[in-house]
Nucleic acid binder design. Structure first.
Lengths: 211, 211
DNA sequence: GTTGCTATTGTACGATCGCTCAATTACCCT
DNA sequence: AGGGTAATTGAGCGATCGTACAATAGCAAC
């Protein structure tokens, strides 16, 4: 009966915070909205109930940080597939679509996590701030990809921001349908619809987007 | 001190159930996910805690019926604006867009209600059944509107189902963005993007949708 | 006026919730 | 080796949750 094992291990706050954020993400995937629970998250992380409030001011603070972390992770995953050096702007967009609707990102579990964040935007100031930043960044990525189209002469001049709003809406909507109705909508359908949308943009078929 | 007022009034089950469904909808609008509470709903309806479980087998049964009721209501609202007798198929689609993004339907409160339903699709069999039925109906309305386009010769032959999936995704996504980022996306933008999408469809610019 | 049916009430129960805080103890530093 | 720091624990608080169930009472039928 020697004291071979310490009861717990002290960890640098930054590391612990990240571990708690990871556990939160796993909980949201597993339980959906019911996963937003200090008790479930601490159990998932293998720590005591009290530790979370030592590292985070409140539950919503932890959720907000998880939102921020996941958004960054997804943005990086999708972006790295659209950053080929020797690719045309159109090919980069295709890569972005492929990555966005690959099983890793178009995952029903991830959708459920996102739903939890969306449901908190209206009532939590912290979450809304993260959402606004996240959505700006996302639209910015799309604007950047679309602006290359116009610059390379592949498309007529169009209203960049409105186009990005439209494309992000199309992608978001397809992502929702993929997650909620996987039997009806397939990833290949989603990609085809996005490709067609870009083709129509290049063809100048979106009259109200031209300038 | 005469017993002028009865303590409560007995009501036909069908009427009471409808009143409870209405109260549930008001609660979801007010409190979002926190509104999914027997106590809050019964307070909103002005009845006792126990009455709900007398008329509904469980909480999720009540939510499912509220989902069904709201979906029907929204579908009817949007459809009646697209049923002009002396309208072209294109005009009917425009009416559908106008109605769908009017303040009454593109309401952040309604979005929050919808989010609650979406968040329950994965873990509740009852809710999933309602979702599947609802989404089929919605896509059916769009397919019907789009099929007129082709029939009237306003558009080349295209894959009806895929087109409906694409248009419903675009509309859903725009509806999400309108609700979550009302400062960035305006109803007029949403309508314009939908109109452009239909125009591109009529122009045959969606190569992957043609057949 | 009386009876019967049942819609309705409201208490009770056990579970879970977020958060607090004093006690504990792992680990770095000298 | 031993002391100081602070990461960690876990019991406890008050609140809320969904559901069960026995008691109550509105209302229609006779």
């Amino acid at each position: 009966m020697s004291k071979s094992q310490p009861k717990f291990r002290r960890t640098a706050p930054a590391v612990r915070r990240e571990a708690l954020v990871d556990a939160t993400l796993r909980c949201l995937k597993k339980y959906g909205h019911d996963g937003v629970s200090i008790r479930k998250i601490s159990a998932e992380a293998g720590v005591s109930i009290g530790l979370i409030n030592h590292h985070f001011p409140s539950k919503s603070g932890l959720i907000a940080e998880t939102y921020e972390s996941l958004a960054r992770s997804l943005r990086e995953s999708a972006s790295e597939q659209s950053s080929g050096k020797n690719a045309t702007s159109r090919e980069r967009l295709s890569g972005f679509f492929q990555a966005s609707f690959a099983p890793t990102l178009a995952d029903p579990e991830l959708f459920n996590v996102w739903i939890v964040f969306w449901s908190m935007v209206r009532h939590s100031e912290e979450i809304r701030a993260v959402h606004d930043r996240t959505y700006d960044d996302y639209r910015g990525v799309l604007e950047s990809l679309l602006s290359e189209l116009a610059r390379c002469g592949d498309a007529p001049k169009f209203k960049l921001r409105q186009a990005a709003i439209g494309l992000s809406a199309l992608m978001d909507g397809l992502w929702v349908e993929l997650s909620l109705s996987p039997a009806t909508v397939k990833p290949a359908d989603a990609i085809a619809l996005c490709e067609d949308w870009v083709s129509a943009l290049c063809a100048g078929s979106f009259a109200r987007l031209l300038k």
